[in-house]
Simulated assay, not measured.
Amino acid sequence: MTEQGGARTSAHLGAAEHIRTYPFDTGASVSGVGMQVGPMGTEGPWAGGEGLSRRVHRIDFHVLLFFRDGPVRHTVDFTEYEVGAGDVLWIRPGQVHSFSATDRYVGTALTMQPGFLPRATVEATGLYRYDRPPLLRPDEAQRAAIDASLEQLQREYLDTATLPLSLHTSVLRHSLTAFMLRVAHVSAQAAADECRPQPDTTFTRFRTAVEQGFTTNHSVSAYADELGYSRRTLVRAVRAATGQTPKGFIDRRVILEAKRLLAHTDLPVGRIGAAVGFADSANFSKFFQQHTGVTPAGFRGEQA
């Protein structure tokens, strides 16, 4: 059974349509499989400088960019990363990002559709660990192993002649799983949390429910009831996975979405508050200021 639902973004928000979301295009994949791998090159969406690169946007799939040259400046959720040769950028579904309009992107781009990998792989690789940094800097040995694994994955992806489609897809899933485990190891090191237990299914289900419902539901008890857990069970699972309380996790997700809309759209503050679950504009402004130290208008002004 493959993972479902964990990557559903807030693109269903009426307000979020002002930040364009790009879906995974299976039609652009070899044989229509749920992944793509190929060079960033000088043209197309992963080239930088053209098309997507000039606009802040979301994606509803995973993108991993493996750089062979640099430096390149790439922004993910309000942080600009300077990426060099040998570095990796892992952009997760729903994150708002933008390409440099001047830097040249050289290397390999790997994309994967939510649901393509099995649930066990999703858990083992931390596919939706948004607390981990997008920028990864493998050491020399890790980079060599990743490069070799990526080359093998690309060969399997392009080889459509030796196996029936169903077997070809299965081989790709296994190859991609092995590859992602290598990348996830580097990601865990970057986050300095190798010793932290992996999130269990309780947290995974909670995180998915929050991603789907944070625009209307800010209640820990409501999520616990929806998922069939006691509040205490939910508190233990979320704290073990993130170090936060469930309420803190929900609030951070709401604040992130509010920041995205304030920075990247011209929507009035009241409409942004409504888009993240506040019927009253004053309550939204108070909530935002409590969590950020500035008013929504003040935050928007800082981004200008």
Rank of each mutant, 00 (worst) to 15 (best):
159 D>L: 05
172 L>C: 05
191 A>V: 03
172 L>M: 03
160 T>L: 07
149 S>Y: 04
127 L>I: 13
127 L>W: 05
164 P>N: 10
185 H>N: 13
113 Q>M: 15
142 Q>H: 06
115 G>V: 02
145 A>S: 13
137 R>Q: 10
159 D>F: 00
202 T>S: 07
147 D>T: 15
141 A>L: 14
182 R>C: 01
196 R>Y: 04
133 P>N: 06
167 L>R: 13
126 G>K: 10
146 I>S: 05
162 T>Q: 02
139 D>Q: 01
119 R>Y: 14
164 P>H: 08
200 D>A: 12
182 R>Q: 15
143 R>Y: 03
198 Q>P: 13
152 Q>Y: 02
203 F>V: 07
125 T>N: 05
180 M>F: 05
160 T>S: 12
129 R>A: 15
144 A>L: 09
159 D>V: 02
167 L>A: 11
190 A>L: 01
144 A>F: 09
136 L>C: 02
182 R>M: 11
147 D>F: 06
195 C>I: 11
203 F>S: 04
170 S>C: 07
117 L>V: 07
171 V>D: 01
204 T>F: 15
113 Q>E: 14
121 T>W: 05
126 G>I: 13
132 R>E: 14
123 E>K: 15
198 Q>F: 15
189 Q>L: 08
150 L>R: 08
202 T>K: 10
172 L>W: 04
123 E>C: 08
138 P>H: 08
201 T>G: 08
113 Q>F: 08
151 E>H: 09
195 C>Y: 08
170 S>A: 15
135 L>D: 06
132 R>S: 13
128 Y>Q: 09
135 L>Q: 06
112 M>H: 14
156 E>C: 12
117 L>Q: 04
131 D>P: 06
125 T>F: 08
133 P>M: 04
172 L>Y: 01
195 C>F: 10
183 V>L: 04
179 F>C: 04
140 E>L: 11
163 L>F: 09
129 R>Y: 13
137 R>C: 04
